[in-house]
């Protein structure tokens, strides 16, 4: 059992999301960066889509009532506080949290980060997913005083990642449309040539962008049709809204373009103040990028290996008794 002692910034339980219900108005939800979710899980010895804690800005303070193995994917300041003192914990490798010790994620410097626990976190599973979707109260809420059950994990081995993945910059690649024709060529040029900044209205549903105002041809409103994470809606004020995992299933604003699947995990890292640019690509380029991303993730997951560098204190002390301090300092 994991107890949430404090949680100053929004965090939530997320897995691969809730496909198969969008015709009933139920959003897809799931991790904003499913690749990092998969890596955190692999480091904790879990299947790629086990539920983990998605964190932004700063994470929670947690305490476990039993020994647990956990791993963090992301750029974070984290430490374990226990009777033996405090020690920092690095991301991209797994660590043991002893019963009664406290894990503090003080800062999340990547746009998003994931904390996976060996065995997976067993929040409420509804419609095939543990992902939290606030508006319809699906999945477990996450907040101070609440507890999360940890699944059975056997005896997990500590693991580490060979190469730490980075989220590169560069423009987000988009496919024009579905309503590209609702925008003038000047608006299209502004969209591709301009720089946008993520505004304050930014959550798991979407990001409102400040930048060039994108004017419509024949109005912003359409008879609602389906939207998807990555779709870029432009309401009447000309300020684009990029949709994310918790977006509604249909929308009534014209969509100028859609961020390609390969760049969605990167989009999930955008926070208020983040600068974004867009570049148009063809469907063929988008599919090639999707294949490359899947291959790269596969390679990263394959590179998750047992952590042989974990200090085995008993062995270390034993060695020191025999060999003296010279070897230990070399």
């Amino acid at each position: 059992m994991l107890e949430i002692l404090a949680c100053p910034f929004p965090a939530s339980l997320q897995d691969a999301g809730r496909p198969g219900y969008r015709h009933l108005g139920v959003p897809l939800s799931g991790a904003l960066d499913p690749e990092w979710l998969a890596l955190a899980n692999a480091l904790a010895g879990n299947p790629p889509d086990a539920a983990a804690i998605e964190m932004r800005l700063a994470g929670p303070r947690l305490q476990s009532d039993a020994d647990a193995l956990f791993a963090i994917a992301g750029d974070v300041d984290a430490r374990i506080v226990g009777e033996a003192g405090t020690h920092a914990v690095a991301a991209w490798r797994s660590h043991r949290l002893r019963a009664g010790e406290e894990l503090r994620i003080d800062a999340v410097r990547s746009g998003v980060a994931y904390l996976a626990v060996a065995g997976g976190l067993e929040g409420r599973r509804e419609l095939g997913s543990r992902s939290r979707y606030e508006r319809a109260d699906l999945g477990s809420p996450f907040g101070p005083g609440m507890t999360l059950k940890v699944g059975a994990s056997g005896t997990p081995i500590p693991r580490r990642l060979g190469v730490v993945p980075a989220r590169s910059g560069g423009p987000l690649r988009v496919i024009p449309g579905p309503q590209r024709e609702r925008f003038s060529d000047a608006a299209w040029d502004d969209f591709l040539g301009g720089e946008f900044v993520v505004g304050r209205e930014a959550d798991r549903m979407g990001l409102r962008l400040d930048g060039p105002r994108l004017g419509h041809v024949g109005g912003a409103d359409i008879v609602s049709d389906a939207v998807t994470p990555g779709a870029i809606q432009v309401p009447g004020d000309g300020r684009p809204i990029v949709l994310l995992a918790d977006c509604q299933t249909v929308g009534g604003y014209a969509k100028i373009a859609t961020v390609i699947g390969a760049d969605l995990p990167r989009l999930g890292h955008a926070l208020p103040g983040t600068r974004l640019r867009f570049a148009a690509v063809s469907l063929e380029q988008a599919l090639a990028a999707r294949r490359a991303a899947a291959d790269a993730l596969g390679a990263s997951l394959a590179a998750v290996a047992p952590d042989t560098t974990e200090p085995d204190l008993a062995a270390l002390y034993g060695a020191n008794l025999i060999d003296g301090v010279i070897d230990a300092t070399n």
């Binding site: 449309g177 049709d225 939207v227 859609t258 390609i260 699947g261 469907l283 999707r290």
Partner: peptide
């Protein structure tokens, strides 16, 4: 038929 990104197609 319209592309809604590379993972969705809309028949309008």
């Amino acid at each position: 038929l319209i592309e809604l990104g590379d993972g969705a197609l809309t028949l309008e």
